[in-house]
Design a protein around this nucleic acid. Structure first.
Lengths: 229, 229
DNA sequence: TAGATTGTTAATCGATTAACAATC
DNA sequence: TAGATTGTTAATCGATTAACAATC
């Protein structure tokens, strides 16, 4: 039988899988042999049916009446998420956010190894941050090709992001994790994930504003509801 | 007429609004008086109808045949997103990520002003990071109440996050921007936004793995498709 | 006037939730 | 066996996209 194009797993599911992985790792450490969807759902405030569907999408099977074998789930999730083999990545922009990410050693457990950092600022080039060398930006495309690096992480200011993205593409990179607050223009086939903090913040503050507007009494600093004594 | 509960704006829409704001700010700077949805959509790779619906949800009106007045849209979006009046926030966890966020001065343009940072580590307490004082964690609840701070930002390690969240709730905080890779257990009515980098990363690397699997020929370092010369 | 563009209603699509059968 | 839990199919819900009428 030919390798049929596997039906893509919905993005929301993809983002929940690490939550299951984390929870089940804890259960594993606690020595628990099995779990039910109900229990997983209770721990993460998710619908049990949704948990079941998500696990099914990741190729995990359980047994009626018994539940899921904890070791199995952990193992299969790591398999499915591609955490078994580590992808090498370049990080561009050795500023404060970039440095913070370089310190996240747990990324390696999630299949991501940042092997080099790049920066346009000569003052930063040549340094090491959390053990990772900072190289000059123009070296990126050549090195990326030579090392077959497939993932690029962008942590430069907004204005510089598109230029960096072009360099990454030139270097044959296939996936970009973009922390700069811009939408990148990229050729077909390049995978992008925008981590746009301003967009998240907007959602948060708008919801807060809406919630406060819904309860006007408690809003003002001098409580208007209680008449002065 | 009574203040009817405004129908909540869908989350996806909320997250797109800042994109419009950004683009229109540029057009404003360029002196453009009006824009059409089609043009906005083209600039952001979004469906024109979606743009129209989003703007409508934010209370922006256009004029048939003319389009939207750029100044109007910018203004109304800022109004709707609550960027006109600044919310004060506490940041907890003055590590590398926390420090990076303290340096993001643009947050203030988006209605967020981080007025103090907190840390459990005595070595960090008393310092200033990008001009913001780092205070001792136990002072948080009292100060939050006294200053009527409503937003908390969590940038501590996973293990510490729930404890920090409890302190924030004790301080009367209403919205939490959580960067720690944990699901927090919170009372009803508290707004949370999880910025879980591991979940984003998982989605990215799984997609990359799937894409690579779909084109096996180009995968290996020694191209198998071309027979040896 | 004619035509472009918004406003608005309907159709489609996808994800979540519910229902129920299969099974250990 | 009985009952809990998975597997799987159907119903619901919400967001996106399409269609078309209103209007400047």
């Amino acid at each position: 039988m030919t390798a049929q194009a596997a039906k893509p797993v919905p993005e929301p599911t993809l983002k929940r899988l690490p939550l299951y992985h984390r929870l089940l790792k804890e259960l594993l450490a606690a020595g628990r042999p099995t779990v039910s969807c109900t229990e997983i759902g209770a721990g993460l405030a998710l619908d049990p049916t949704q948990v079941r569907k998500d696990l099914e999408a990741a190729g995990v099977a359980g047994r009626p009446r018994i539940g899921y074998a904890v070791t199995d789930v952990v193992d299969q999730l790591e398999q499915f998420l591609g955490w078994k083999k580590v992808n090498e990545a370049f990080l561009v922009g050795a500023g404060s956010l970039g440095s913070a990410l370089l310190g996240y050693r747990k990324f390696e457990e999630c299949g991501l190894k940042i092997v080099a950092a790049f920066d346009a600022d000569p003052a930063r080039v040549g340094r090491r941050i959390h053990g990772t060398h900072v190289l000059a930006l123009p070296k990126l495309p050549g090195l990326a090709r030579r090392m077959h690096v497939l993932i690029g992480i962008i942590t430069v200011p907004a204005e510089a992001a598109q230029g960096v993205a072009d360099l990454l593409v030139e270097g044959g990179i296939r996936a970009i994790w973009n922390f700069a607050p811009v939408r990148l223009h990229l050729p077909e086939g390049i995978i992008v994930h925008n981590e746009d903090l301003y967009c998240s913040l907007a959602a948060l503050s708008q919801k807060l504003a809406a919630a406060l507007a819904a309860e006007p009494a408690r809003r003002s600093r001098t409580p208007a509801a209680t008449p002065a004594a």
